[in-house]
Design a protein around this nucleic acid. Structure first.
Lengths: 197, 197
DNA sequence: ACTTCTGGTTGACTCGTGGTACACCTATGA
DNA sequence: TCATAGGTGTACCACGAGTCAACCAGAAGT
């Protein structure tokens, strides 16, 4: 029973509420009562509510990155293809979650839609980290254009998250998997077809 | 020089500002000065700011639907395949627009993320209208599962919008077209391969 | 000519929320 | 012993949504 720092508890509570209800729909007071501290105390940990969101985004970014590594390690198997495909085990898991409400980063970017906003940039940065990770997996497969494959897979993933969120359609999971398989298969095919064009 | 009703001018101004800056980042006063009326006058046209957003969403929904019909008519050509593909001419156009900031409906749904919210439902409804339209185009192509094809294409389109918005990547357009072509080709292939399985 | 409806005006007001200022308390560790 | 980190409470400000009361001008109906 180690005592977890107040700052971390604030990030945790904020993460949950912001993700479920949306940043602008959550009052600071709600988070304060969740954690059980006063407003003055809060402002000794964070400069502003925006600052708290920034911290929550980066924290979720780190978590997501470690989840990606974990799933590749635990379910990717020995082949690069299997490792690339295993990312979609993680996507499946998200899409299946009852409490799924879309991608946290995209949600944040939508509430701060101007590219010069720090929140927008934090969201984009964290998305990019995942894209780079997937690019490396694609490269390991020896495909011709790993960046292109990675970006297409990320596009599918974004589309899946949005679709699942706004249509509430459970079938999104199957469609996403089919699309991913198709794209990966095509990339692997053109690899063997044109060796170092 | 017909005088356009104040209500319509409010919807127009709100549409622009809400889309560019986000609903919560726009004060009613900004819209009022855009249009040049007072606050009291505004509340004789709309019950609330939310109500104004609802009207703006439905207006954009009608506009989008008519744009879909127009592009199919003007650029779809004689074949059902060409008509289905022509939808992506419209998508290209959006992705090329300097002032593109993602899908208005998705943006709205992200700011009101709970499914019971009227704004969320309006966004979902307008998305669904497009999906149904594309399903009909797919059906005309004689593919086995037109709903499945339509949903996959919509998923790609959502993904493209989000990707273009958060990564600012101009290459999204090409990738989207490639993905769409691949999916459509696959659906058409399996049609000729298994005639009424 | 008089009334009524539509769409508009001004100004003062409430209420919720982000954020600040000030004074004070308590435990810990150099 | 003294500073610092983390905490309390209360009062306060600014801003944005939304309300209310009173008033006004033009078009239309009879």
């Amino acid at each position: 029973m180690v005592k977890v720092p107040t700052r971390d508890r604030l990030i945790e509570a904020a993460s949950n509420r912001f993700y479920r209800d949306g940043f602008r729909n959550v009052g600071i007071d709600q988070i304060l009562t969740d954690v059980g501290i006063s407003k003055t105390a809060f402002y000794k940990h964070f400069e502003s509510k925006d600052d708290l969101l920034l911290a929550a985004l980066d924290e979720k970014g780190d978590w997501l990155y470690s989840m990606c590594q974990k799933v590749v390690w635990e379910r990717g198997g020995p082949t690069p293809e299997g490792q690339l495909r295993s990312i979609f085990d993680l996507v499946d898991m998200f899409l299946d979650d009852e409490k799924f409400h879309g991608c946290f980063f995209v949600r944040a970017a939508m509430e701060f839609p101007l590219p010069q906003e720090p929140v927008f940039q934090a969201a984009a940065r964290n998305k990019m980290t995942v894209e780079v990770f997937i690019t490396q997996l694609a490269r390991n497969c020896g495909v011709e254009q790993p960046e292109d494959l990675s970006r297409k897979l990320c596009l599918i993933i974004e589309g899946a998250y949005v679709t699942r969120h706004v249509t509430q359609n459970r079938d999104t999971k199957r469609m996403t998997r089919e699309l991913a398989d198709m794209i990966i298969a095509e990339a692997l095919d053109s690899r063997s077809a044109e060796p170092t064009a």
